[in-house]
Design a protein around this nucleic acid. Sequence first.
DNA 1: ATGAAAGCGCTAACAC
DNA 2: GTGTTAGCGCTTTCAT
Lengths: 297, 297
Amino acid sequence: MDELDYQPNLLAGSLRKKKTGTIGLIIPDNSNMLYADISKNFEDIFFSKNYNIIVGNSAYIIKREIEHLKNLRSKMVDGILMIPASTEGEHIERIRAAGVPVVLLDRKIMGLEVDYVLPDNYQFGYIAGKYLTGLGHKDIGYIDRFQPHYHSIERKKGFKDALAEGGITFDDDNVLEGGLSYDRGAETAKKLIQKNKKITALFSFNDINALGAIRGLNDIGLKVPGDVSVMGIDDIAISSIFIPSLTTIRYPVKEMVDEASRILLDRIKQPVFKKNKEVVIKPELIIRESTSPITKT
Amino acid sequence: MDELDYQPNLLAGSLRKKKTGTIGLIIPDNSNMLYADISKNFEDIFFSKNYNIIVGNSAYIIKREIEHLKNLRSKMVDGILMIPASTEGEHIERIRAAGVPVVLLDRKIMGLEVDYVLPDNYQFGYIAGKYLTGLGHKDIGYIDRFQPHYHSIERKKGFKDALAEGGITFDDDNVLEGGLSYDRGAETAKKLIQKNKKITALFSFNDINALGAIRGLNDIGLKVPGDVSVMGIDDIAISSIFIPSLTTIRYPVKEMVDEASRILLDRIKQPVFKKNKEVVIKPELIIRESTSPITKT
DNA sequence: ATGAAAGCGCTAACAC
DNA sequence: GTGTTAGCGCTTTCAT
């Protein structure tokens, strides 16, 4: 009857049970180290709970995200975790209305009522501002996201408040929208310094960008941290490896993934939609080599 | 009959058609940038062909790999791509015998007859040897994989041959098994230099390790490439970003993924198992800042 | 052409 | 407790 190597057809069982034991994960881009890390952490947790994961990269393209969502729904996944590609929420609302639990990570979509797990964006800015002013820096360049968004606005607000507490007024002239990439970081850092030679520190929207800034400063003969201190946000793997290693604020990947997994698993067990959850997790300062007390006067 | 937002249940169709439109991907560790890149490339290709991907991280643990394979088979995936976790092949043979097309990437498992897509490991070593001797280096440190394996042995052979062509005999004393990680790279580079002060160049098993080596050399006051040239293998994202940027031999990710996808898709269409394929793809030298002509005499 | 029915391989419900 | 059957939602086949 069974010839030793039998494996049940889970498809049939799933059809019957209306549970597939697979969950969907949609991220913008697996070659972004932060997202790769998030994805790996998810996989670990759900593997231990006997779930499989279908991953999809949206590439920040809303059409791809929509298509992935459709596929996942048709494949009857038990739940979905996603980092949204845009500020559009209608398609997400739809799949949730169809009864599929959805937990969003990283970004909030205004007007969309689902479960969220977010980093404390205000704190990202606040911690950086406090730390840099504590080192004596007064003229601080700020590299903002290319198109300011909900989260970047929060970060800037926190930064501004920290400066104010140190008696320093945030100078809008020291802000440049330098995008998120390494190359744009290099470029933007140079521009900022040329614009204002008094700058002794730079705070960037993310680590990759900050690393680019260090390279850019090096290229015009400025030493980090000797001449200019640089810090970023995320604490991706490169940041500790880079020379100089980067002072940064750790994106709480593990905590966020744990929390999101817990919520999703709960929703799967208990599909009654009570009040949505919104969990916000505090980040943590990681001091390394790229920052130092002010030396110029 | 259909209230606007109907989505078909693909489970039912799959059960009938014996085609799920999902394929399995097993990699050792998605937080390794090379594998993250491979995984992203696969996802892109199969998305465009209307497949979904179930990913699993084996974490180099054979038990996990076996479990993932079981799951994938039970979920009736149409095919499987994997980077094997070990040199064990029995469980892979079994799933293939059950009629699931399997393509292995990166490593060969001796005695296992499946389709393979591999980088040309001999060339990795040969190209490095040629380039370094071409720069005039004669005393070259070699950081080998922790436990030498099929691929690392090939690499060393190529390196040796290149040196021989330059009239240099490969010195086994210049070899240390320094593992694959950044930290081990730093440690091993220091040991090598202390062992043989005449070393002017270092070749490492992979980029992460080579980057660690640069850090290690820096820490004992040696400049790269001024005092010692360093090169690696892979060309991961960090390598072009690092200061100094790393001379390396590009792991042909895109070409390999393209080829593996093509083979897998073929096998899915045409499940008759003819002769297995073994495709070997040539890597490419990427010259950057971490290497320079010899200066010492 | 269009429509009815059988069946994919399981699980849950039901009968014994 | 054990054995049988109905049915999950599709696709495919067969009959009209």
